[in-house]
Amino acid sequence: MSAKTRVPTAINGGPYGQAWSAKADCLQSITGLILGVFLLFHMHFEASILLGKETFFHMVQFLEGSMFSSTDHGFPIVTKIISVIMLVIVAIHAATALRRFPTQLGQWRAMRGFMSSIKHKDTQLWFWQMITGFLLFFLVSAHLATMILNPEIGPHLSAERVYHDNAWLLYVVFLPIVLFHGIVGLYRVILKWGVSSNRPLIRTIAHVLIVYLLCLGTLSLVTYINIGMELVLPVQPFIPN
C-alpha cells in the first residue's frame, strides 16, 4: 500500500471546490495590485526631492491634505492613517501569499530539485519573488512602523531620518527588494488574470520599470543623504521662501 493515502473529499472522490480558495486568490491579487500601484506612485512622490526642497515640501503638504487646512500645512496624521491602512493591506497580502510558500521540507526539496534539473526563467523569477516576499515581511514592517510612530515628512525631517537616524541602511536593502518583488508581482498578476496575453510586451515594460525606478530611488536616496549631511543638529523643519 502506498505510504500516501489521499482521503476522498467529495462525493465523487475528487477535490472539493472551496469558496475560500477563490477568495484568497482574489484577495492576494487585489492587495498585490494595490501595493504595486502604490509603489509606483510612492517612488515618484518621494523622488520629487530631485526637483528641489521646495517642490518636495509642497508635494508633502498637498498629499497630507493642505487644501483642508487654514495654515497651508498638511496633517501628518494622514501619513499615519495611510501607513496603518497599508500595513493592513500588506498583512492580508502576506497571509494569502503564504499559501504559495513551500511550507514543508519535502516541498522545498522538490522545488530546489526541480530548479536544478529544469531550466525555466519564470520559475526562477517566482523563486526570487518568494525570497524577496519573505524578506519584505520584515522590511515593510520596519518601514511602516517608522512612518506610524514618526509620521513627519519634509525635506529636512526625512533627510534627518535617512542620514542621522541611519534609515539609509534600511532603504539600501529595501529599495531593490521591494522593486523586484512589486514589479514582478504586477507582471504576474496581469498574466494570471489574462488582463493581457502580450507577455513579451509586459515583460519588457517590467524590465524597464525596474531599472528606471531603481535609478530614480537611488538618486532620491543619495539626495536625502546629501541634504542630511548638510544639516546641523538639532534639525529644524524646512521653511519655504
Partner: peptide, 28 residues
Amino acid sequence: YHVIGNQDGVFGCMTLLGCQDNCPKDLP
C-alpha cells in the same frame, strides 16, 4: 468549480508558466 475551484485546481496555479513555455504543441 466543484472540481477545480480549489488549491488543487485553478486557484493553486502560481502562474509560473512552465506549461506555456514548454508545451510542444504550443497550446494556449
